[in-house]
């Protein structure tokens, strides 16, 4: 079942089109990557989902219902431009933002207590935001985003500005939230940063959707049946079933990229190799999302 169904959404600004008839589904309980270069229209789409702006045409359905203001409290949004009230105490700020999302004061206080334990930040609660380090501010901001336990969490460029330790902490939290049933949308132009996290993706380029679906399927579609082999010995492939794309020999150690032809299986290649050389490593060369994106963009422009 999809938590969000985007159906033919178009958004125009005075002198450019930000989104042009974009449609895709976001399945519930997955981590979804909304990917594309800067200016592709990701933020415009997110602002329509979070009801900051409205679409010129097209519909969005949240859990099967047409998007309406009451859905806001089931969403948590971490914008790319982050910020908090600098002169407000951490505790008060979290309480305020949680209440604005519809929690009662008591609920909000209880949630804050949980998160304080999880992030071990008890001693900051009475500090002003401006007295915290950048990383700590980011943690507080993340807490504010998910405090009301939204079923849809939207993170715009989530890892920009996080140091590696905090980035890992946030990744773990995201996975935990997903396991608890939340759906997470990552929006980023750095595709490699979220590739291993995402279950599903949609690629957007120049206000149009280029491609969407489960990462595994997309990769299957775009895989080239190419394997990288490293081993000892003199490799010389003469079979018509395999094509050597690239080969390096160095003091009896070789490294080669080999493509399977005419329905040959990886095991056929492995058997063929074992009879001739000593295999140390045998890995399928899977295209990265980045590669797929570039290929797809090229295709759409040449077509």
């Amino acid at each position: 079942m999809s938590i969000l169904k985007i159906d033919g959404v178009t958004k125009r600004y005075a002198n450019h089109t930000a989104l042009d008839n974009v449609s895709f589904d976001i399945p519930a309980g997955c981590i979804f990557g909304l990917l594309g270069p800067n200016g592709a229209g990701k933020t415009s789409l997110i602002r329509i989902i979070t009801q900051i702006t409205g679409a010129d045409s097209g519909e969005i359905f949240f859990k099967g219902e047409k998007l309406r203001p009451s859905h806001i409290k089931s969403m948590g949004y971490l914008p790319e431009e982050r910020g908090l009230y600098k002169k407000m105490k951490v505790g008060e700020q979290l309480l305020y933002l949680a209440q604005l999302k519809g929690l009662t004061k008591d609920e909000a206080t209880a949630r804050i207590k949980e998160w304080v334990l999880r992030f071990e930040i008890k001693e900051w609660m009475n500090k002003n935001i401006e007295d915290l380090s950048k990383g700590m501010q980011q943690k507080v901001q993340f807490m504010a985003t998910v405090m009301h336990e939204p079923s849809l969490i939207i993170l715009d460029e989530p890892f920009s500005g996080f140091d590696p330790i905090n980035a890992n902490l946030i990744k773990d939290e995201i996975l935990r939230l997903r396991d608890n049933g939340a759906t997470i949308i990552f929006s980023t132009h750095r595709m490699e940063s979220v590739e291993e996290l995402c279950d599903n993706i949609a690629l957007i380029n120049r206000s149009r959707k280029v491609l969407d679906g489960p990462v595994r399927e997309i990769k299957d579609t775009y895989k080239t049946d190419t394997y990288q082999v490293i081993g000892n010995g003199q490799l010389l492939i003469t079979s018509p079933d395999f094509e050597v794309l690239e080969q390096h020999d160095n003091h009896g150690v070789f490294r080669a990229s080999i493509r399977l032809l005419d329905g040959a299986s990886p095991n056929d290649l492995l058997r063929y190799l074992i009879q001739r050389v000593e295999v140390h490593s045998f890995v399928e060369l899977v295209p990265s999302i980045n590669d797929i994106f570039i290929r797809k963009v090229k295709e759409t422009y040449h077509a």
Partner: peptide, 15 residues
């Protein structure tokens, strides 16, 4: 202040 602190977008995703 709300603009320069960049809190505005957080706020108007709630109100």
């Amino acid at each position: 202040e709300e603009k320069t602190n960049r809190i505005v977008e957080v706020m108007i995703s709630s109100v």
